[in-house]
């Protein structure tokens, strides 16, 4: 069954027109608060750590790079990898302890039941990535189904890197368990593989490099707010819920 254009009643059409005129006359635009300052700071620190861990890790992961850089540089990279690795683990943990409700909220969203729009969105996602100009996507809740999957993979690979990283650190400093160490190294490599793939996709979409996602960077690197228009496009169900409750809605001067 196809979505056919909805024809509003005369009264509805009048109300919609008045609503749009009032919005234009006010010179303001509605924004929805999406991410708290703490979430943005945690995300920012984690990203900085993650990027440095990727760069410093490459000096051990790629033999040609290690050999070209020489042992002095590689040693410095390895040591920084350990120090930054501690920050990569500690900062989200401290943040989680400071905001347990936020953590529950994140995981509730990650494991929320998929409705028919979620499933359809996921099926359409790959065609959409290449045909964004022509495909309109089904409305989504606070986390798109694809986001739930991709964010879940990032959470999983981040946790895998953290746990295996600690084991590698312990196994190369205060303890010796060669066989476990070798398997842990392999799992660390698996985590790196996942971070490469899902991290790149996350940057491409989240930083708004992909044209339909322009402005997304503001959510985590700006004031944490999303415009009404963008919210309706990306998370339609959530946006309408928020706009109706008005709890997290602020009006700001319209961008022209």
């Amino acid at each position: 069954m196809s979505n056919e254009a909805y024809v509003p009643t005369a009264a509805e059409a009048r109300a919609d027109e008045e609503f749009l005129r009032a919005q234009e006359a006010s010179g303001t635009e509605r924004f929805i608060k999406r991410h708290s300052l703490q979430a943005r700071v945690t995300h920012g620190v984690t990203i900085a750590c993650c990027l440095w861990l990727v760069v410093s890790g490459l000096f051990v992961f790629i033999p040609a790079l290690a050999q070209a850089a020489g042992p002095g540089v590689v040693f410095a990279m390895r040591m920084s990898h350990r120090v930054i690795g501690v920050a990569f683990i500690a900062v989200p943990l401290v943040s989680a302890l400071l905001a347990p409700k936020g953590v529950r909220h994140i995981f509730r969203n990650l494991f929320a039941k998929w409705d028919s729009d979620d499933k359809k969105w996921m099926i359409l996602f790959f065609p959409y990535l290449f045909m964004a100009k022509w495909i309109h996507m089904p409305d989504q809740h606070e986390l798109k189904s694809g986001q739930r999957f991709a964010d879940g993979m990032l959470w999983f690979s981040g946790a895998l890197m953290a746990v295996t990283g600690v084991i590698l650190l312990v196994g190369s400093t205060v303890a010796s368990f060669p066989a476990v160490y070798a398997w842990t190294l392999f799992l660390h490599d698996i985590g790196f593989f996942l971070i490469c793939v899902f991290g790149l996709a996350h940057i491409f979409l989240g930083a708004g490099i992909f044209q339909p996602y322009r402005g997304s960077a503001r959510l985590m690197f700006g004031d944490g707010m999303v415009s009404e228009s963008d919210a309706l496009y990306h998370w339609g169900h959530w946006a309408r819920e928020e706009l109706e409750s008005g709890e997290n809605v602020v009006e700001k001067e319209a961008r022209r």
Partner: peptide, 19 residues
């Protein structure tokens, strides 16, 4: 994806809770 997305434009949207 980036190359195919060149020139992408989206109309602004608004939601009228009343209707």
């Amino acid at each position: 994806m980036f190359a195919l997305g060149a020139g992408y434009k989206r109309d602004r949207r608004a939601y009228n809770p009343a209707t």
